[in-house]
């Protein structure tokens, strides 16, 4: 896959501006932990100058693919795509990642109900799903598998079951899941939010790789409220957290430190991770829904 990105890699001038956006580099200040370092390592693999070993695999996987680095790259290099492509070409896999993939690909529950809510839900969120007359399924779309650079068999199973069992409407939360539901009546849960219960000033956390449409909808929901927007990665992504626990903890603590008062995050994954370190709630927990 990397071959496809040859020109894209050459476009990187090595200016290192990307370092200022990388939460992982911020802590270690190791070249290898910077977006530039990962691009160069990808190039080394592509040209055959270096061969894969454990350190190369770790260097390429030690990135949550938040893509905030792309926002400061003046050459607009598709850093995340390059890293992802390099991961797909890797023969080795970290044991933590293999375990996670086995868990996710091994999922095989039945999906029933006319309207379903897909997401990694805690008990409160399950109640919300019920309020929306939706059957909750505590499983994601397998984005983790793709980020690791392997085939996502989980989503194939989910989509297959949705189609086979006559599910009429799918509700999801993570905006990246949208691409899987082509041809299915699927809606983001934001479409069901009527208002939010928050009056104090807060920090709004939206992962950087959530698309513009999602961000605009969230801003609309919080219109008139006083908040500061934070797009930095908190290290919550399952595959990252499992393989790089210490870094994930430091990244979460950073977000807490930077925040102004309470944090409202727009990702259930981030909520689960961040709440261990500070005053954090998920958007769904303060939202009032248009119940149908």
């Amino acid at each position: 896959m990397l071959e496809k990105y040859h020109k894209e890699i050459l476009t990187c001038t090595g200016c290192a501006f990307c370092k200022k956006a990388c939460q992982i580099y911020f802590h270690t200040r190791n070249e290898t932990d910077s977006p530039k370092g990962r691009i160069m390592i990808s190039y080394g693999l592509l040209t055959g100058e270096i061969e894969e070993d454990e350190s190369i695999v770790k260097a390429l996987q030690k990135c949550a693919l938040c893509r905030l680095c792309e926002s400061v790259c003046p050459s607009r290099v598709k850093i995340g795509d390059i890293i992802k492509a390099a991961r797909y070409d890797l023969k080795m896999i970290l044991p933590e990642h293999q375990k996670l993939i086995d868990e996710l690909n091994g999922w095989n529950e039945e999906i029933n109900g006319k309207r379903i809510f897909i997401g990694e839900l805690d008990s409160d969120a399950k109640e919300i799903a019920e309020k929306l007359n939706a059957t909750p399924y505590a499983i994601g779309c397998g984005l983790e598998i793709e980020r690791i650079g392997r085939e996502n068999k989980l989503i194939e199973k989910i989509v297959d079951k949705i189609k086979k069992n006559g599910v009429e409407e799918v509700i999801y939360y993570e905006p990246q899941c949208k691409k899987y539901f082509e041809g299915i009546n699927a809606k983001n849960i934001l479409d069901f939010i009527e208002s939010v219960d928050i009056n104090e000033k807060f920090t709004l956390h939206i992962p950087y790789d959530y698309d513009d449409e999602f961000v605009e909808k969230v801003k609309e929901i919080f219109k008139g409220k006083k908040f500061e927007l934070v797009r930095e990665c908190c290290g919550a992504r399952e595959e990252f957290k499992r393989a790089f626990e210490k870094e994930a903890e430091e990244m979460a603590k950073d977000i807490i430190k930077k925040s102004n008062g309470k944090i409202i995050t727009t990702s259930l994954k981030c909520y689960e991770h961040l709440k261990k370190y500070g005053d954090v709630v998920d958007l769904l927990h303060i939202a009032n829904f248009k119940v149908k």
């Binding site: 090595g14 190791n30 070249e31 290898t32 160069m40 070993d53 350190s55 190369i56």
Partner: peptide
Amino acid sequence: LVSKADLYAYGFDASIHHAMPHAV
């Protein structure tokens, strides 16, 4: 820092050149 990844990544600056060190 002496892993293959470290030695390779530290061989660059922002110029047109590259070479590998023995250690970082």
